[in-house]
């Protein structure tokens, strides 16, 4: 009983923590008043929005999420230098931009959202669309010799890790 009551009070515990953190950073103070008001916001906002996000993700491995985030930040830095080099040096005719079709193994909406965001932020690829039943991701590559290589790289580097984190 206590567990269901707690779940009703805090539908998204992680969201509550993030809201308190954001409120503290926004006020750039760690006083008691800030934390208490942040906690009030952190309880009210998830309850007001739970109707739009009913399926709470469970069993996320936060340790792996942190290492995944660090990997993505590193990839963003490397990728930006690569894309900047391609944009500045290659002529338009020499760039081979293609569509890449990625069949998805992950099923939860949160994992697919993370994958699409990661793809857009990293090397020369933008996620453009999802198939109507959510089993395929359409990706546009700026300069790729081989579409299959891009697909395999994304599947091994990001999707496998996200599958471990979310499922």
């Amino acid at each position: 009983m206590a567990r269901t009551a707690l779940r009703r009070l805090l539908p998204h515990p992680a969201l509550t923590l993030i809201l308190i953190l954001v409120w503290a950073i926004l006020n750039s103070s760690l006083s008691l008043g800030t934390i208490v008001f942040g906690a009030i916001l952190g309880i009210l906002i998830p309850q007001a929005t739970v109707a739009y996000w009913p399926d709470v993700p469970r069993g996320i491995r936060f340790g792996k999420l942190v290492s995944y985030t660090l990997l993505v930040i590193w990839d963003i830095l490397v990728a930006n230098v690569q894309v900047a080099w391609i944009v500045m040096t290659k002529t338009n005719a020499k760039m081979k931009s293609t569509w890449v079709n990625i069949p998805l193994d992950i099923k939860t909406p949160e994992a697919i959202t993370m994958l699409a965001g990661t793809i857009t932020l990293t090397p020369g690829t933008v996620s453009a669309d999802l198939s109507d039943e959510g089993h395929c991701l359409l990706v546009h590559a700026l300069d790729a010799d081989d579409a299959d290589a891009v697909r395999d790289d994304i599947k091994q580097r990001y999707e496998a890790r996200l599958k471990e984190i979310f499922e």
Partner: peptide, 8 residues
């Protein structure tokens, strides 16, 4: 798309 019928 390789699995479903069409892009969204």
């Amino acid at each position: 798309p390789s699995e479903d019928s069409q892009w969204a």
